[in-house]
């Protein structure tokens, strides 16, 4: 009578899946196909899309603004992920050795809970050239005020710093959660052997944290590539093109210049870049193998 275990829930299953499958088909599947189609057409939102082959991609390859937006995004990601990950690692390590206080963790989480638009506004005000608090401090030190968002050299690092402020706490908590999984006897026996904190961090924490660190890096890297809100609020891509990141480039092409086909092609390039980067990063960090497992 063992055949009774071979159930088939076909009919029930489709009811369970119905809302999700409808949502997926209409707002993921259909637009994905449509996006691919737009990318090989000339489409301005008003006309019917006209097939142009690979023209959009050829144009992208020769578009200095497109390449500039990729460069700007790349720089932003390096500055943002670099500073954010190092700071978060430091904070997580301190918490790991000092305190797991819930109040502290909730405080660190606060900037992450706030809309990026609000974060952008807060810092545009704090970093304002004339009235901003930070420039008060700078002038109080006898230096001349800095146009954090209006000076082309400062704008991108400022955006990166703002988002580092917004996401460091969140990243630190993720890393801290990972550190909690490391067995404490490792630290105890290392301490008996006379290892200092720095040595323990390098020899125990870092290697055993690698899978979590890889995961966090991949997630924050992908998120960082998609920076939009802060730029939209603080600089709108300027001054000139100093902060026109790839998301903002696509947004402008689609909704300011109505080059839907061109924007779709750029979005596909971004998707490809993200896919390749994720694959490389996972491999570099040997994410699938954990020294603990």
């Amino acid at each position: 009578m063992s055949t009774t275990t071979r159930r088939d829930d076909r009919r029930a299953a489709w009811w369970f899946l119905l809302p999700v499958l409808v949502g997926f088909a209409v707002f993921y599947g259909y637009p994905a196909v449509r996006g691919l189609w737009y990318s090989v057409t000339d489409y301005s939102l008003i006309n019917t899309p006209a097939f142009v082959g690979t023209d959009n991609y050829a144009r992208l390859a020769g578009d200095a603004e497109f390449w500039n937006s990729l460069m700007v995004t790349g720089w932003y990601v390096v500055l943002n992920i670099g500073s954010q990950t190092l700071l978060a690692l430091g904070i997580a390590a301190l918490m790991h050795r000092l305190t797991g206080s819930l109040v502290l963790r909730a405080t660190l989480l606060l900037p992450w809970l706030v809309p990026n638009v609000t974060v952008g506004l807060l810092w545009v005000w704090l970093l304002d050239t004339n009235l901003g608090f930070v420039n008060h401090l700078i002038t109080a030190l006898g230096l001349s005020p800095v146009g954090f968002f209006t000076d082309a050299a400062w704008a991108l690092p400022s955006i990166a710093a703002v988002n580092t402020w917004a996401y460091t706490g969140y990243t630190a908590l993720l890393l801290y959660a990972g550190m909690l999984q490391i067995p404490s006897y490792l630290y105890e026996s290392a301490a008996i052997d006379g290892a200092g904190e720095a040595r323990m961090f390098r020899a125990i924490t870092l290697p055993l944290l690698r899978p979590v660190l890889a995961m966090v890096l991949v997630i924050s890297l992908i998120g960082s590539f998609q920076i939009f809100d802060t730029v939209a609020v603080a600089t709108r891509g300027g001054p000139v093109s100093a902060t026109r990141v790839i998301y903002y480039f696509i947004y402008q092409q689609a909704f300011n210049y109505f080059n839907m086909g061109y924007a779709a092609a750029a979005a596909i390039c971004l998707a490809l870049i993200l896919g390749v980067l994720t694959a490389i990063q996972m491999r570099l960090l040997r994410a699938s193998s954990s020294d603990l497992a």
């Binding site: 998609q226 689609a254 998707a271």
Partner: peptide, 30 residues
């Protein structure tokens, strides 16, 4: 248990890799 379960799930998960802006443009049109 139903036929095609793993295939359907695999397709859903593949969508995790697609950046939102790619579906955002056609969704706006829709």
């Amino acid at each position: 248990r139903f036929p095609g379960r793993d295939l359907v799930f695999g397709i859903l998960i593949a969508a995790l890799m697609v950046p939102p802006i790619f579906t955002l443009l056609p969704n706006f049109v829709l």
